[in-house]
Design a protein around this nucleic acid. Structure first.
Length: 601
RNA sequence: GCGCCGGUGGUCUAGUGGUAGGACAUGAGCUUCCCAAGCUCAUAGCCCGGGUUCAAUUCCCGGCCGGCGCACCA
């Protein structure tokens, strides 16, 4: 298929289009139209159902703006400041700090200011790696991928738009653990916007500057908790392991069930579990499984915190795009926030049986230390405590030596209150590990649209069709009168209201001939259409609008039900319609299973 | 951010130094009309700014936006 055809259809039919077109548009920002917004909602609801409800995880909704300190802890402030220098000759952009590191013995060049980097470029006669032009004198520009803002008036308090929803979960961990009654494992999900000031947004919905993430942070005890593999054990995964990517030009996949992938040690068990869940979910919303795979990150590609990471990828026009990342983040984020903040990011885990352990303790005689060391007494006491834990033997002599700020002090052992005691330990503080399935909602929506799009031929006529899954299609049923006359329009409008009252997304259309209306709905992806025709009219003959049954009373007439993908029709009693359609939407029945006789034209 | 190409109704597109034509779509009406039929009428457009010129949608410069390639993608 051609991507531009889909983009054109998306704009015309209200799926998505570039924002602020009246002012020339902004790169990397899109507005979902009425169809698209509903499709996106449906995809998100399906995600909630699968990753939240079915897994027993709970959802939160954190702010999109967070104070600077959060991103200092998470590491985003450092890693988001890229220093770029452009070659005046060939136009290539390079990471200036990397050039310094590659051409000098300076390490961690990232920690220098841009001006210093520019000076270093000049000092070391660094040239463009692409064409060899001297880069001395070229400006070094800092490019931060986070959107910065001020919190409150003035610029005293810097905030950033979150570059991932995950930090909103990590930073609230102490409160969330409390909610979970401090019991591991537990999972927290969040669906929300994230922002990255991308250098070059591309490919419509694929790389934007504002996008929606659906993330799950599953907190587990790394030593004890295991996934319930049997729930997804038989799900077949198309895997593209790192070694296969490295070893040959040919793309070679490994097909394994979740169970096999774990048993063979191919995929970390927790990651494998969510690959299984992820595959089921992508399939359920209509992603083509022949154009879907899981690719393992190469070792150089792995984020510093990740022990293992697999991306879900979808194929569009021959290219593979990242749809989701399934990462084992270990305790990286929690330990960072534990370190940077005042709160405790651990969970107390009680032992099955409490242990009695020997512990060396001190109880320093402060009436001695105080006069002896003045203001430094507290530091000396703290140092004694550390020493006792580290080295009991140090307390065997008459005096103990500790060093505070490089200065050595000698304290009589009898003044330290050193003792070895038996202490009962009932449990320990555990820093949970995190498994993170992180789904790009917009990319999922886009992939669903691309994979659903087709141009077929029906009876010699070209037909554009969006074969959206009934479970996510934004408009579920179109209701038409064969013609808007002789009362058919009235019946159809009443029927539309009734279907809506049943919670079905129904649209009414009487414009143009019937064939045109079918094609219109094919193009927007409406899976079913209902037509009120002369037979319907005949069935309800003699009943004036005021005399016709209303509410729960049977109406008694029949209509045709037409399926988008096959263009087949069946005749069904109108009173059965709401239940029938609901079953079709939930996938509890299929159109071909309907045994009503086919309507003849 | 760099390079190449491009920007005309909602969509696709023709064309021009003297402000524009088509197709599809849309709306109203006619046609007893089950898979984009026909007829009539209607709505609607030259990305923005500057320059050259009597006159710019058209030529020049810059910007914005898009496509592709490079770089970037914690």
């Amino acid at each position: 298929m051609s991507r531009s055809n889909l983009v054109e259809l998306a704009k015309r039919r209200g799926y998505f289009f570039q924002s602020a077109g009246a002012y020339g548009g902004v790169s990397g920002f899109y507005t979902y139209g009425p169809q698209g917004a509903t499709l996106k909602d449906n995809v998100e609801d399906a995600w909630r159902e699968r990753f939240g409800v079915q897994e027993g995880h709970r959802e939160i909704d954190a702010p999109t703006v967070m104070p600077e300190a959060v991103f200092e802890a998470s590491g985003h402030l450092d890693t988001f400041d890229d220093m770029l220098v452009a070659c005046p000759e060939c136009g290539a952009s390079h990471r200036a700090d990397h050039l310094i590191e590659d051409n000098t013995d300076i390490e961690e060049a990232e920690s220098f200011a841009p001006e210093e980097i520019a000076d270093l470029v000049a000092e070391h006669d660094i040239q463009c790696p692409n064409c060899g032009t001297e880069l001395a004198g070229e400006p070094v520009e800092e490019f931060n991928l986070m959107f910065e803002t001020n919190i409150g008036p003035g610029d005293a308090s810097t905030g950033y738009l979150r570059p991932e929803t995950a930090q909103g979960i990590f930073v609230e961990f102490p409160q969330l653990a409390e909610y979970a009654r401090n019991q591991l494992p537990f999972g927290i999900t969040q669906i929300g916007k994230a922002y990255r000031n991308e250098i070059s947004p591309r490919n419509s919905l694929v790389r934007t500057r504002e996008f929606t993430q659906a993330e799950l942070e599953h907190f587990v005890d790394p030593n004890e908790d295991e996934p319930l593999i049997e729930r997804v054990a038989d799900v077949e995964l198309t895997l593209y392991p790192a070694e296969k990517q490295a070893e040959s030009e040919e793309t070679e996949y490994v097909t394994r069930t979740v169970r096999e992938a774990v048993d063979e040690g191919l995929v970390h068990e927790w990651v494998a579990y969510y690959l299984g869940v992820g595959k089921q979910w992508y399939e359920s919303i209509g992603v083509d499984m022949d154009r879907f795979r899981f690719r393992q990150h190469l070792s150089g590609e792995l984020a510093h915190y990740a022990a293992d990471c697999w991306d879900a990828e979808g194929e569009i026009d021959g290219d593979w795009y990242e749809l989701a990342g399934f990462a084992y983040r270990s305790d990286y984020d929690l330990s960072k926030h534990d370190e940077y903040s005042d709160d405790d990011f651990t969970v107390f885990k009680q032992y099955d049986e409490s242990k009695v352990v020997e512990r060396a303790t001190v109880d320093p005689d402060m009436s001695y230390l105080g006069p002896e060391f003045g203001g430094g007494a507290a530091d000396v006491a703290a140092e004694l405590e550390l020493l006792a834990e580290r080295d009991r033997a140090a307390f065997e002599d008459e005096a103990v030596t500790v060093s505070v700020d490089g200065e050595e002090h000698e304290i009589p052992t009898e003044k330290t209150g050193f003792a070895v005691e038996e202490v009962k330990e009932t449990g320990e503080q555990i820093m949970p590990h995190v498994i993170e399935p992180s789904i790009g909602v917009d990319r999922a929506v886009y992939t669903v649209l691309v994979h659903a799009y087709s141009e077929d031929e029906v009876e010699g006529e070209q037909r554009t069709r969006l074969a959206l899954d009934p479970g996510v299609a934004p408009t579920f049923v179109g209701v038409f009168p064969l013609m808007d006359k002789d009362g058919m329009g009235e019946l159809a409008r009443e029927l539309t209201d009734e279907l809506r009252a049943e919670g079905l997304a129904a649209t009414y259309d009487d414009s143009g001939n019937i064939g045109r209306r079918y094609r219109r709905q094919d193009e927007v992806g409406t899976p079913f259409c209902v037509t009120v025709d002369y037979d319907s009219l005949e069935d309800s003959e003699g009943q004036r609008a005021s005399e016709r049954p209303s509410g729960d009373e049977p109406r008694g007439y029949t209509v045709t039900l037409r399926e988008r993908d096959s263009t087949e029709q069946v005749r069904v009693p109108v009173d059965d319609l709401p239940d029938l359609l609901a079953d079709l939407r939930e996938g509890e029945t299929t159109f071909s299973e309907l045994d009503a006789p086919a309507a003849e034209q």
